[in-house]
Nucleic acid binder design. Sequence first.
DNA 1: GTGCTTGCAAACAGTTTGCAGATAG
DNA 2: CTATCTGCAAACTGTTTGCAAGCAC
Lengths: 148, 148
Amino acid sequence: MDSQARLDELLTRLREQGYRLTPQRVALVQLLIDSKTHPSAGQIYEQLHAQFPTMSLATVYKTLHLLKEMGEVLELGFGDDDNRYDASDPDPHPHLVCIRCRKIIDPDVPVFETLAQEVAAASGYHILSHRLDFFGICPACQEEAAEN
Amino acid sequence: MDSQARLDELLTRLREQGYRLTPQRVALVQLLIDSKTHPSAGQIYEQLHAQFPTMSLATVYKTLHLLKEMGEVLELGFGDDDNRYDASDPDPHPHLVCIRCRKIIDPDVPVFETLAQEVAAASGYHILSHRLDFFGICPACQEEAAEN
DNA sequence: GTGCTTGCAAACAGTTTGCAGATAG
DNA sequence: CTATCTGCAAACTGTTTGCAAGCAC
């Protein structure tokens, strides 16, 4: 789905559920969808603060919470770092994390429905979701390391 | 590997690297290895506090940090919850998380070396590690839900 | 106009750190 | 004996919350 379509979809969904389309919310949703790097709340705040000098971090968190509740955004927590947010596709999909520059991208890999089914069958769990992350060093950081 | 062998291995490795085997450390390592539920720092602290009434949370964290540095323990962070620790097998392996009771177990599933290779080839990343978590409801919690 | 939303500041939880006294080797 | 480790308390970081003023509808 292209960014524009996803943006329209999200804004429509917000309006339909009775939420107000404040400039801050629209800007945040736009930023989140345009970004390919899955930004953190702090990064979102920094960028929006340029547009809205009075905007607070609390609003960022409240809006992200709202989108999470609606199931329109994936919250990627790592425990040792701040959470990252992915609104491009709300269904679980793998992520590829550079442990050096902390960039996170969506790699193109086939999903594995079968594995989840196997796990469910073997464990008796009712599996609702999953998460698959790869950690490594991105091409840019590999080059940088080679130079030094 | 059985628990006793793993415990010996870990204690030996600590000693070899010049770390002191304090009673607190030995008890923590033992607890971690015996536990099948991947406890949090707080849970570890509560249990050890029964044995060592003066033991502090800081010591728990410091010891976990040490084991992490040695690569002998897996730290499982989720972002919305406290971190969980797995010392049974320091190599990455899938986890199965009950979203109701927060129990975490190691399911028996084949690992997928091929997928990591595919991702590496397609992205140019140098992949070092990965993490695969399934989220669902464990059999006990399913029953409990059915009763109510 | 109504009441949801914002922005501030304070609260919060998990984790980390500094330091003085305790202790493993 | 000595360097490491412990335990306390305070600091820190990311996130959440309460509340009065502001603004979307």
